[in-house]
Design a protein around this nucleic acid. Sequence first.
DNA 1: GATTAGCACTCCTTTTTGTTGAGTGCTAAT
DNA 2: ATTAGCACTCAACAAAAAGGAGTGCTAATC
Lengths: 355, 355
Amino acid sequence: MEHLDERKTKILKAIIRTYLETGEPVGSRTISKYTDLNLSSATIRNEMSDLEELGYIVQPHTSAGRIPSDQGYRFYVDHLMEEKEREVSEMKEFVIERTEKMEQVLKNVVKLLATNTNYATMITAPQYRRGKLKFIQLSQVDAEQILAVIVLEGNIVKNKIIRTGLEELNAEQILKLNLLLNTSLNGLALNEINLATIAKLKEQAGIHSEIVGKVLDAIAESISEDEDLEIYTSGATNIFKYPELADSDRARELISAFEEKQQLIGLVSDTLSDEESTGIQVYIGNETPVQTMRDCSVVTATYELGEGMKGTIGIIGPKRMDYENVMDNLKTLKNQLDGIFKKPPDGNRDTKNSF
Amino acid sequence: MEHLDERKTKILKAIIRTYLETGEPVGSRTISKYTDLNLSSATIRNEMSDLEELGYIVQPHTSAGRIPSDQGYRFYVDHLMEEKEREVSEMKEFVIERTEKMEQVLKNVVKLLATNTNYATMITAPQYRRGKLKFIQLSQVDAEQILAVIVLEGNIVKNKIIRTGLEELNAEQILKLNLLLNTSLNGLALNEINLATIAKLKEQAGIHSEIVGKVLDAIAESISEDEDLEIYTSGATNIFKYPELADSDRARELISAFEEKQQLIGLVSDTLSDEESTGIQVYIGNETPVQTMRDCSVVTATYELGEGMKGTIGIIGPKRMDYENVMDNLKTLKNQLDGIFKKPPDGNRDTKNSF
DNA sequence: GATTAGCACTCCTTTTTGTTGAGTGCTAAT
DNA sequence: ATTAGCACTCAACAAAAAGGAGTGCTAATC
C-alpha cells in the first residue's frame, strides 16, 4: 500500500487539495483541468478507480466524485504536505508580551489560534508536577485557618486554605515553619518531593509534624486538583462553519465537550505521553483519543514553559482542515511560548509593560 | 391595556400555559376543551381575536393558532404566575457543602442549575469592591519581584506579582511593610480605601512609599482586572433542545456568547444596578440588555455572599421557559448562597469535610 | 499498450405539484 | 351572548418530475 507511482501521487494530491478547499466530492473532470499533467477525464477516472481500490479515496455514493478517506488524509499529512512559507509568524509577539498572569497568556493564545485558523482550539495550563518550587509562604488568616501560598517557576501561584484544627500556632512558629519549608523544598521539582524528603521534613518540624503533613498534602492537592480543569478553549462555534460537522447531533456533542471540558483531558494525556520528534501530533478521524471527535481531525502540540512544565495545545476541525496552516501556526507558537516565562529579563527588554 | 376581564384573563392564561408546554401555536379548540369555563371554540375564537388586537398574543401566520407575544409573557410573569410548591429545594445543600474553593462552588452551582432547569446558565464571581480585607501578605519571590497575596472575607484569595524595580528590600523591611499594611487596612472594605487612607499609609511607609503605592495599585488592579471575566457557565448547549432557538444562526451567536463570555457582562451590570424587591429580574425577548438574546428570556438574580459582595446568576432559555420553576430555583439558591462563606462554623457543623 | 471520446446509466438535488389538516373568520341560527 | 356550520387559508408533508454531475464501460485513436 505504500508505493504509488508518481502520477497517482499527483492525482491524489490534487484530489485532496481541491477537496480541502471546496469540501465537495471532486470529479474526474475537475482534476483533468486542475493538474499540469494534461490528461483527459477518462484517464483520471481510471486512476481514480485504482486509488479507490487502494483505499485512499472513497465515493460517498455511485455517480458522485471522490473524497479522501482517512487513509488518504494520513498519506497526505505524512508525505504530500508542503512546508508553507510562514507569514503568520509576526503577529504573535504582541499577544505574548510579557504578561504577569499566565492565565491571561493562555487565554490570549487560544483566542489567537482560533481566529487565525477558524477551528476550535484548546490549551491546557502546564503540568506543574515537574515545575520547580520557587517559594512557599504560610500565613495565619484567622484563629483556625492558615493560608499556604505556593509559587512555582514561571510565577505560577497557587494557594490553599488549611484548617489547623485545634492546634494553634503563633506568629513565631509560623515563621519557623516557613523557613523550614523553604530551605528544604525550594528549587525542588514537585515530583522530586518524595517520601524521604517528607519524612525528613516532618522530623525537623518536631511537634509540628502534623501541620507539615497537612501543608504538604495541601501542596499536592492544590497542584493536582484543578489541573484537570485548567483548560481554556476558544472558537468552539467555528465548527458550525463546516457543513459536514455543523449538522447532526454530533456538533452539539462537540460543543458540549468544549463547554464542559472534561472530555478534552483525553487529548492531553495522549499527547504528553508521546515523545514525537516535532512534538506535533495529528489525529485523523477515528485515530482520535476522544470519541466525540471521530468525525474531526485533531492536531495537538506540546509546549514547554520552564523545565518540564509541559502543556498541550489542541486544534479541532473538520478532517479537511488546512493542515499546513495549522501545523505552521502551532510550530511558531511553540517556539514563542517556549521559555517565555523563564527567559531572564535582559538588556533589550525595553518594551516592557507599563509597570 | 391593563384591564382584561376575568374571562379574557383566564383564556390568556390557558393559552400561555399550553404554549409553555408544547411550544406549538395553540388553537381555539384546544382552549375550549382545556378550560373549566365551558365555552365553544367559536366563542374562544372571538376572545382570542380580541386578545390579539390588545397585543397579548400573535398569529405566526393566518390559519395558525396563537402564541404569546412578549407583552403576553410579561403579563403572565407579572400577574398570572402562581407560586410553586417547592420540591427542588433540598438537593442543594450537598453541592454547596463547605468547600474551600469559592471557584468550585460557583462551578457546581451553575452546573446544578443547568441540569435542573435544562436552560443555559451563568454565574459571576462576587464583586469584591465592597468585600472586606481580611489579610495582606507581601513576600519576596526573587531579587526583583515580590508577591502580594490578598485575602478577602469569604476566603477569596487574590495574588499579584509586583516588580520592585531597582529598589531592593530586605526581609526585615518586608516584615515591616506587612505589619503596616495589615494594621492599616484590615477590616476595611475595598471601596473604603480612599485617598486619605492611602496618603496616610504612604507617609507612614517613609522611604518605601513608592512600593506601598505599587502594592495598593496592585491590589486595586488584581481585584478589578479579571473580575470582568470571572464568569462560569454551563449547559449552553441546552438551547439546542428548543427548536425555536436551535435553528438559525442566532443559536450559534448565543453559544458563542457563552463561550467568549464577554457579552454576558451586560447582564451583570444591568442586574446589579437594579434594586428590586425580590432581586430577581425577568427579561423577555427584546427587554434583554444583551442583544444576542433577543429571542430568549433571561432571568437573573443577585446573590450576596458577605456584606456587599454581590454576584449575579443568570438563566437563559426560550421565551416559553418554565418561569415558575426557574424563579423557584433561583430563590432557593439565593437563600442557600447567602452568607454561606461568612457563616461562622458553629456547633452543629459536624458534617465537615475530610480535612 | 496507453489514452481518449462517447454514451448509457446512476443517484443526488432541486423544483414542482398535489394532498392533508389544523385553524381561522364570518354568518346565521339558537 | 353564544354557538353551529361552512368556506377559506396556509404550513407541512409527500410524491413526482426535472436536472445534472459524475461514473463505468466500450470502442476508436495515437
